[in-house]
Simulated scan of single mutants.
Amino acid sequence: MRTERGLDRLVFFTDAVSAIAITLLILPLVDSASVAVTAHHSVERFIGDNLGQLFGFVLSFAVIARMWAVHHSLFEHVAAYSRTLFILSLFWALTIVFLPLPTEMLQFPTSTITVVWYIGTMLLSSIALLLIAVTVRRHPEISPEDNPMQARGVFGISVNAIAFLVALIVGVAVPVINFYALLLVLLASPAMLIYDRVMARRA
């Protein structure tokens, strides 16, 4: 196991990566605004010409914020870290810092490639979170005694990963749906309610 200071630095690093990735999302829109001002375009025209970019920014911001929140909550159950946890966190950071690129690719005509790159990146990020959760769950020595990783948390992250996988399959298999397949991720909340009811009945 590594030191507590090393764990803090790992958490700070992933936090910084998330903040930078979110910041990078807005930069193309800032550049577009500068070009529009130079060309003397109206605000209405700028918004109309960049609706796709604005939608991509808001969606990717929400995804990164959500992924960071899950990562943050996961590390509430971590008191020490292993090499495996370190590598998985770096892999998760890679998916987050990469997301601004497929977000910008939304400006291309929608195709199988753009859907795979965009939703696929989110899927990889959710898989990384799931692997982190499983690692923490299976190695209780990593968790503080008073706040271990619970099965419910692993289940919730599993549902998210499955939802992104199904969204990717649907988005590719049914081109007319494409990115709207991400709405399937909203089913994670009802799934958690069902899980809680089942567990309550068993208890």
Rank of each mutant, 00 (worst) to 15 (best):
G52L: 12
V43Q: 11
V37W: 12
S60H: 00
Q53S: 11
F91C: 14
L88P: 05
T95F: 07
L88K: 09
W92C: 04
I47D: 06
S42Y: 09
L99Q: 06
M67P: 00
G52S: 11
G56E: 02
M67G: 01
L54E: 02
L59P: 03
S82A: 07
A69Q: 13
L99D: 00
A69H: 14
F61N: 03
A62N: 04
S73V: 09
G48A: 06
S32F: 11
V63P: 02
S42M: 10
Y81D: 00
V70H: 07
I64G: 02
A39Y: 07
L99K: 02
R45Q: 11
T84F: 02
S60P: 00
L94V: 14
W68G: 08
L59S: 08
S82W: 06
L88G: 04
I87N: 14
F98E: 04
V37G: 05
S60M: 00
H40K: 15
F61I: 04
L90Y: 08
T95P: 04
H41Q: 15
A39R: 15
G48K: 03
L88W: 10
S89G: 07
F75G: 11
G48I: 04
I96D: 00
F57K: 05
H40Y: 09
S34C: 05
G52F: 05
V63I: 15
A79N: 12
H71I: 08
L94A: 15
G48P: 01
R66D: 07
E76Y: 08
H72Q: 13
V35P: 01
A36W: 10
L90V: 10
V78K: 01
A93K: 10
S34N: 14
A33V: 07
V58Q: 02
I64C: 03
R83Q: 13
